[in-house]
């Protein structure tokens, strides 16, 4: 009985080809767990990613440049 139940379960479960699993969770679950969400409002700021691109845009838009500098790029690995 146990063997039959196990076999039926195994046959009805999605195969590895259907859905990738890592530690019992699919990739959608991993994305949800790891990726930043709406709580990271700072990501909505339209940052230029370099000093020179920001400076060029400041000249074009005639606005002052607000530059945020860190060890490691703030939009990358800081």
């Amino acid at each position: 009985m146990f063997l039959t139940t196990t076999l039926i379960l195994a046959l009805s479960l999605p195969t590895a080809a259907d859905r990738i699993q890592l530690d019992g969770h699919d990739l959608d679950a991993w994305a949800q767990a790891v990726l930043p969400g709406g709580e990271e409002a700072w990501l909505t700021i339209p940052w230029h990613a370099t000093l020179h691109e920001g400076l060029r845009a400041a000249g074009q838009q005639q606005k002052p440049l607000l530059l945020w500098l860190m060890n490691g790029h703030p939009l990358g690995c800081t």
Binding site: W42, K63, L65, L66, N71
Partner: peptide, 25 residues
């Protein structure tokens, strides 16, 4: 600073007066 400064809605709004940019120091 990502959270303490740049997640503050007042700072995000004020940043509109500027061209915002970031870089590696």
């Amino acid at each position: 600073g990502r959270r303490s400064v740049w997640n503050d809605p007042r700072v995000i709004e004020k940043a509109r007066a500027f061209v915002p940019a970031t870089d590696e120091v």
